[in-house]
Simulated scan of single mutants.
Amino acid sequence: MQRAAERDQQGRRERRAKGRGRVLVCAAAVPVVLLVAGCSSGSDSGSGDSGSKGSDSGGTSSSTGAGATPTVQAAAYKKLPDSCAVLSKKTLTSLVPEAKSGKEGTSSDTATRASCSWSSLDNNGVKGSQFRWLNVSLLRFESDATRGEGDQLAHAYFAKQVKDAQAVEGAKNAKTTSVAGTGDEATLVRYDLKKKEGAFKQQTVVTRVENVVVTVDYNGAGLAGEKTPNADTLVKLAEQAAKEVVATVSAANGDGTAPSTSPSPSKSASPSPSKSSSASPSSSASKKS
């Protein structure tokens, strides 16, 4: 009996020892699990932050790297009329009464650049002669994504033409004024020029309508003793010609009505530049193209 009691007590001690061992093993295993879980959590968090930063960086890069393609409004006028047909016969008779026909200027692309000139010599023998010269030049600008819209490019060229007209060497009594009723902006430059043939009265009207610049050069002189023409009369004729050319350009592009000799309402007039001079008279015809 005593041995049986001792064996029973020994069994209980062994069972308790085994129980304590299992508790210690489990207790020892807990920090390992927590450590692994902690490392795993830190790794996931780190990769999450890294991915987020990478995503932000990628979004910024793509938004700044993809630039929008610049666009410009298409030019209003797509063509030019026949340069030698921009004025009516009636108008030409007033400006260059003895001219038989116009001389077309050289151009590699008449849809963009064109010109025509007329010369008139009313020979009165020993009483002298009246000389008139008229040149009309047209330049059309297309819109360009790198350079700008057609009407803006035309405006810049218009300003340059006015300055060129003011810069003629030897010009006297020069005046620069704005012209009403002609295109979107128009300027007249007038002056006197003494040449070996006689005293010339020069009128240059530069005007812009949409994306087209029109330059009208008109001069007159009394030769071989004939009296010098009235400058105010020549100015009116030059302005009349400029209005008619603008109307012809507009009509050729389906804008407005057919040209007429009566003044049309002005869209706007250009401010009068401060300097005075102009483009050369008849000898400058070779410069116009």
Rank of each mutant, 00 (worst) to 15 (best):
E239C: 00
L193P: 00
K90C: 01
L92Y: 10
D122R: 04
S129Y: 03
Q202A: 06
M1H: 01
S43A: 14
G148S: 06
A186V: 05
V189A: 11
S50W: 07
C116M: 11
V205W: 14
C84W: 07
K287E: 03
L138I: 05
T204H: 10
A231G: 02
T248K: 13
V25R: 13
A37T: 14
A4E: 07
S94R: 08
S117E: 01
R140P: 10
T64N: 11
Q240D: 08
R132E: 02
L138A: 01
S50G: 04
A258Y: 05
A199E: 15
G128W: 05
T71R: 10
K201I: 07
K194D: 13
S117N: 03
D164G: 06
D192M: 03
Q203D: 08
K196S: 15
A74C: 02
G198S: 12
P259T: 08
G170Y: 15
K18P: 00
G150V: 11
A156S: 13
P281R: 01
T187S: 02
T177D: 13
S284N: 09
L24T: 12
E244R: 00
P259R: 07
R22C: 03
Q73K: 11
R22P: 00
A99N: 04
T91E: 10
A221L: 04
R15G: 02
R20A: 13
N173H: 10
K194A: 12
S40Y: 14
V214M: 09
S52P: 00
Q10T: 09
E210C: 00
S52R: 10
S264Y: 02
E169R: 15
D192K: 12
D109I: 05
R7F: 02
P265D: 09
G102I: 04
N219V: 05
G150M: 10
S266A: 15
T93M: 09
S278N: 11
N135E: 02
R208E: 07
T233A: 11
G58V: 04
A159I: 03
T182G: 01
G21L: 15
M1C: 02
L92Q: 14
V213F: 12
K236Y: 02
E142W: 02
T228Y: 04
E104A: 14
G254D: 06
G59V: 12
G105W: 03
S57M: 05
V86C: 05
S55C: 06
A74R: 13
M1Q: 07
A154D: 06
K163R: 12
V249E: 11
S41M: 15
P271S: 10
A4K: 00
G198Q: 14
A285E: 06
G46S: 09
D255M: 04
G19D: 08
N123D: 15
S262V: 09
Q161A: 10
V25P: 01
L95T: 10
T182L: 12
S101Q: 11
A4P: 01
G48N: 11
L134N: 01
S83N: 02
N219M: 09
Q10D: 13
S178E: 08
D164N: 10
R190T: 13
G19E: 08
S83T: 02
P31H: 12
G42K: 13
S63R: 11
G58S: 15
A221D: 05
D232V: 04
A68G: 10
A68I: 08
G125H: 08
D184P: 02
A186W: 05
Y77G: 00
Y157V: 00
E98T: 03
G51A: 12
S108I: 03
A29R: 01
S278Y: 13
G38F: 14
Q9R: 14
